[in-house]
Amino acid sequence: MENNLLEVHRLKKYYPITGGLLGRTIGHVKAVDDVSFSIQKGETFGLVGESGSGKSTTGRTILRLLEKTEGEVRFQGIDVHALNRQELRALRPRMQYIFQDPYSSLNPRVRIGEALGEALLDHGLLPQAEVRERVLEVMALCGLATYHVDRYPHEFSGGQRQRIGIARAIMMNPDFIVADEPVSALDVSIQAQIINLFAELQEQRKLTYLFISHDLSVVEHLCTRIGVMYLGSLLELAPRDELFLEPLHPYTKALLSSVPLPIPKKKRERIVLQGDMPSPANPPTGCKFHTRCPYVKDICRQEVPAFREVSTDRFVACHLV
């Protein structure tokens, strides 16, 4: 589609498992396994799932922070993984990443002002004399004070560090941002502030987000479409309202059952999944979810369900649907 900013087609990211005296490859950890979706300009696409489902690896492989194993990632028609080093460097300012832990992604010995302005100088986007003014402008936009510019990372709270991470991502005027669990470590009151900041920045700058989270209540406020991942694969993809109103996949139903309702004294019927997520190094045959599915049938153990469109812009991989 012409309106798609990003198109991901059959993306795979495998890590080799080596063994023996010669260190031969004896298997693979299938972190991302045949994932396809697209993101339209100006939308917020959510990726949800349990820890270890491959959400962050998908985001990093899309931005080529990790090299793919197979598949294709196209950003405005450009094959990201086919670019040479110089071409990729030229594309970098348009695609940015907000890391899950803002503290570990900041150099503790570098003042925030220098850390934020570093990329502008490195890419030659602004002369030295104008960098500080630009840094202060973006910091103010992200709710940071002028005097914060000369502080070190350890002098900030968790919410402030997350604002610094957002400021660093929008510093280069990107078109697309991957936000990896940006509010998971924050208090609920600070989460609301950061979510509102994301929405305001999107409206002002026409940004497109890939928002990665395990918290469906956060995703519900921010995202227009949602993909549900499990063990490296997409199990369901749907517009937000349809997904929350009528989830189709048993795994999506289980995730949604844990989200509290905003109505006092009213509770969802809780679906508790049995057992742990299998290892991505040795995934189950057939449907990857069948070992924990309460509705499992023989066909689920034998055949991999196709990820197919069941209604307009609604996809699911389940034999029961």
Rank of each mutant, 00 (worst) to 15 (best):
D79C: 02
G124F: 00
Y147P: 13
A82K: 11
L121G: 12
P93H: 09
Y147N: 15
D180K: 07
G77D: 08
L121W: 03
I164K: 10
M139C: 11
A119I: 08
V138F: 04
V138A: 09
L120P: 00
L116G: 09
Q100L: 13
I194V: 10
F99I: 08
R134F: 05
E181S: 05
N173G: 08
A145K: 15
F75S: 04
P182K: 04
V135S: 14
R134D: 04
S104I: 09
R85M: 14
Q128G: 07
A115V: 11
V188T: 09
M171L: 08
L197S: 04
A167L: 07
I177G: 04
M172Y: 03
P93C: 11
G124N: 12
P93N: 08
V80K: 01
C142Q: 09
H148K: 06
A119W: 00
G77H: 11
E181A: 05
D187L: 02
A199M: 12
R94P: 06
D122G: 15
L83M: 04
V183M: 03
L144Y: 12
S189M: 06
G143P: 13
I190F: 04
G165M: 06
D122F: 07
E200H: 06
H154K: 05
I195H: 01
G158I: 11
L201K: 01
R161G: 06
R132M: 10
G113V: 08
H148R: 01
Q160R: 03
N107F: 13
G117R: 02
M95Y: 03
V183D: 05
I195M: 07
D180H: 01
M95N: 09
A199Y: 04
E200C: 02
A119C: 10
V80C: 03
L121V: 13
L106G: 00
L88W: 05
D180P: 10
D150R: 14
P102R: 11
I112H: 00
D101Y: 12
Y147E: 15
E203W: 00
Q162P: 08
